[in-house]
Amino acid sequence: MLTWRELGGYLRQLPPRARTRIAMGDKDGLWGLAEHLQGLTIDELRIANWQRSNEGVKQSKQSKRPTPITRPGTGPKAADKNSPQRIARRNAAKVRAARRRSAIARGEIT
């Protein structure tokens, strides 16, 4: 019979690509060193091609800078910023702030 501490030790020592680690939400093991280096190479080549294609062009007429390839464990920032859950939390915070301001104005909170 295993103790919780022993089980935790076994789980921490699993290889990065083990299905158990991935099922537990560890996204770092999806890409190894070779995949990260290849992603970096692709990003650098895209930037170099972008620079060459915009050489001698006014800054206002240049094309947009290429976005990097998304890595495991990271998602698009704009999508997270405007997700329905985040919008709902933001609206709830605004309602709470308005209630607090009105309670302060009525003198209920000092």
Rank of each mutant, 00 (worst) to 15 (best):
G39Y: 02
S83C: 03
A18T: 06
A79N: 10
H36K: 05
K81N: 10
R21P: 02
G9A: 09
K27S: 06
R89H: 10
W31Q: 04
A98R: 14
K64L: 14
A97Y: 10
N49C: 05
G39D: 09
I47K: 08
I69K: 08
G107Q: 01
Y10G: 09
G56F: 02
A103R: 08
W50C: 09
Q13N: 13
A92Q: 10
Q59D: 06
A34E: 15
G9S: 02
M1R: 12
K77E: 11
A92D: 06
R86K: 15
Q13R: 14
P72E: 04
V57M: 03
M24G: 01
N91A: 14
K77C: 06
K64R: 15
R21Y: 13
R52K: 11
A78E: 15
R12S: 13
D26R: 04
A23F: 07
Q13W: 05
G9I: 06
I87S: 07
K64V: 13
R90Y: 13
R65K: 14
R96I: 03
R52Q: 10
A34Y: 09
I69N: 03
G9D: 08
G39N: 10
A97H: 07
Q62N: 07
L30K: 01
E108W: 02
L30W: 01
M1L: 06
A93K: 10
A92E: 11
E108M: 04
R12F: 09
W50A: 09
W4K: 09
A23E: 12
A105F: 05
L33D: 12
E6N: 02
P15L: 07
E108Y: 00
A98F: 05
A103M: 06
R5G: 08
K58V: 01
G56V: 05
T110P: 04
I87V: 14
E108G: 00
N91V: 09
E6D: 11
A18R: 02
Q62D: 04
P84H: 04
P16S: 12
Q85K: 13
E44M: 14
Q62A: 08
Y10D: 08
A103L: 06
D26N: 11
R12I: 10
A93Y: 12
R96N: 10
S60R: 02
K81A: 10
E6S: 15
W31N: 00
R46V: 12
A79Y: 08
T41S: 15
T41F: 13
